[in-house]
Amino acid sequence: MCTIRKIQFVLACVGLSLLPGSLVLAEGSNTEFFNGQDFTGWVTEKGMPVEQGWEVVDGMVHLKRAKGERRVGHILTTSQHENFELEFEWKLTEGTNSGIKYRVRNYEGKILGCEYQINDETKTRFDEHSTAALYALYPPNDQKVLKPTGEFKHGKIVVQGNRIQHWLNGKLVVDVEVGSEDWKERVANSKFDNRAGFGENPEGQIMLTDHGGEIWYRNLTYRKLD
């Protein structure tokens, strides 16, 4: 909280202010991630500027495509991210499927990465395709508690070396070691079995996905870790 107050003071001195829901710059942060005002530092999968479907409103990232409409596509950072902590809040519309990918890289023409899965769930699920799962590999544990559709939930991704953690509403729900025998076995038994070294790259881009439906992100807090 002290760090945030210092930032607010500095911004006030130069005539700026934090937008509601904007990026909070924690100590060690990387401003290339998201500036809270526009998509500087972000591109489409084809490397083009973000101009359709996605928007920044009052500091919030919004995928405004309605369910059933044609997808506008994922967006991703131009910068590479290695060890980091990313906190965020999100809400979505009924039936929406989305997620945040990290350690994203090109696998022979396919852009893939580890994913913090986000789904609209009418009933809390605990499988590897449910909210807060490490998509297709690790399900969330029994500490998972969701809030109703339309309410903001709190998530956190921590990536440091070979360790990945997913947090949901203040609870640690996924805690894994990348490259372990368990990891390799799960990858071999997943849709990523033909992607050599999947998720083992120490750095990569961060991606917001468009899998169907409308989603909002706010209070994005990014911190680079040693």
Rank of each mutant, 00 (worst) to 15 (best):
G68Q: 11
M60I: 07
E115T: 00
K101F: 12
E89Q: 15
L25C: 07
H81W: 07
K67S: 14
L220E: 12
E94F: 03
E151M: 13
T149A: 10
V158T: 04
M1S: 15
D182F: 02
D226L: 10
L86H: 05
V24Q: 13
N141S: 03
C114H: 15
A12N: 15
F126C: 06
W216S: 07
L134P: 02
W183E: 12
E203R: 14
D58S: 14
G170H: 08
G21A: 09
K144I: 10
A132V: 02
I164D: 00
E203V: 08
D226K: 13
N83W: 01
Q143C: 05
L16Q: 14
G53V: 11
I157C: 04
L134C: 07
K156P: 05
E115N: 01
T78Y: 02
K91V: 13
E55W: 00
K123W: 09
P202D: 09
F33I: 06
S29L: 10
G155P: 03
Y116C: 01
W216Y: 15
K64M: 08
L92H: 11
V145S: 07
K144D: 03
L112V: 05
H74I: 02
N30D: 15
L220C: 14
R163I: 12
E203D: 10
R223E: 13
G36V: 11
L208M: 04
G199Q: 07
E32M: 06
H154Q: 14
K110V: 14
K156M: 14
P20G: 04
R71D: 09
P140T: 03
E87Q: 13
E151H: 06
I111G: 07
N194Q: 14
I157N: 03
R125G: 15
I164C: 01
N83G: 01
V72S: 08
F9G: 05
E55L: 11
E55D: 10
I4Y: 15
Y135G: 00
H74C: 14
